[in-house]
């Protein structure tokens, strides 16, 4: 079935074009580089940007991890991991520490990343200003002039209306003091992991045809106000599997009586803790 397709599916000319976009993105942190996104055998909106980035940087000796919602066993993560196992024949893993490339949708692993690792984010809407102004031509001007007042006004209006900034995921960040950037719909819980990370962060938006990047050790600041500092989500519960109180927890409804349990969103993190003898909350 994969006969007739190049290593990692994309032809080499396309890979070269995408690598150029990636290099430009790395050179201008947080800037959205337009690229000639291809149709992929998976639908737009299901990770085609991330898949194209991964396909372009993947080498024979890479070890690939794919997560969706933090988990390796969600259906779309399974599907994408299988795709690359099939068209590239590379080794795959669920262990964050073993992976050289981690493609993700909506999470950054709890395990701290190390130098040499590459995170590839699937991005639905790369433009952080889109919800304030739908026109790309206007938003390009705002980026060119670093005019991000509209976003601060939006956050301020949240505080007036709700008493707090209501954005809880895809929380806007300022990269290297210059470009406003959408971190993709990761929970704001994960935003601090972007800041000065030793790993390279690549963002691919297939349908929107944009690539951007955060090079290693780049300062990334979540927008806030002096009197309303950026705050992380917290849980009063612990993971029912491993007992962790510091990781991002998924809520699982147990019945129709309102009973619920919480488990780590990051399955590898949770499994590693259990293997190390950490028990779950009752």
């Amino acid at each position: 079935m994969t006969a007739g397709y190049n290593f990692a599916y994309l032809d080499e000319q396309t890979k070269r074009m995408i690598r150029r976009a990636i290099l430009k993105g790395v050179a201008v942190p947080g800037y959205q580089v337009p690229f000639a996104s291809r149709e992929m055998p998976l639908p737009f909106g299901w990770g085609t940007g991330g898949i194209q980035v991964t396909a372009s940087i993947l080498g024979y000796h890479d070890v690939l991890k794919v997560i969706d919602q933090g988990a390796d066993d969600t259906t779309n993560a399974v599907s994408i991991r299988r795709f690359f196992a099939r068209v590239a024949g590379v080794a795959t893993t669920t262990r964050t520490t073993e992976a050289t490339i981690i493609q993700t949708r909506h999470r950054i692993p709890e395990t701290p990343l190390r130098a040499g690792q590459i995170m590839v984010f699937q991005v639905p809407i790369p433009e952080p200003l889109r919800w304030l102004e739908p026109r790309e031509s206007e938003n390009r001007k705002s980026h060119a002039m670093a005019d991000y007042g509209a976003m601060h006004v939006k956050l301020y209006e949240d505080i007036v209306r709700y008493g707090q900034i209501a954005t809880s995921y895809d929380y806007p960040v300022r990269v290297a003091g210059r470009y406003l950037m959408a971190p993709s719909p990761i929970p704001k819980f994960d935003n601090p992991k972007l800041d000065r990370s030793p790993a390279l962060m690549l963002f691919g938006a297939g349908r929107e045809k944009r690539i951007y990047a955060i090079p290693p050790h780049t300062p990334v600041v979540s927008l806030d106000f002096e009197d309303h500092p950026f705050r992380l989500q917290r849980w009063t519960e612990a993971c029912s599997q491993c007992g962790d109180t510091a990781s991002f927890l998924d809520e699982i409804l147990m019945d129709d009586q309102g009973n619920r349990r919480f488990v780590c969103s990051d399955t590898d993190h949770c499994a590693a803790r259990q293997a190390a003898g950490q028990g779950g909350a009752p």
């Binding site: 639908p43 737009f44 919602q69 809880s168 929970p187 349908r207 989500q233 969103s265």
Partner: peptide
């Protein structure tokens, strides 16, 4: 149609994390 249909149907993918973030907020 390929872009529109794909993005529409991606709503079938799990959004546990974002929804959880909204619930928390």
């Amino acid at each position: 149609t390929v872009e529109a249909s794909g993005f529409l149907q991606h709503l079938k993918l799990p959004h546990y994390v974002d929804f959880q973030s909204e619930l928390e907020g």
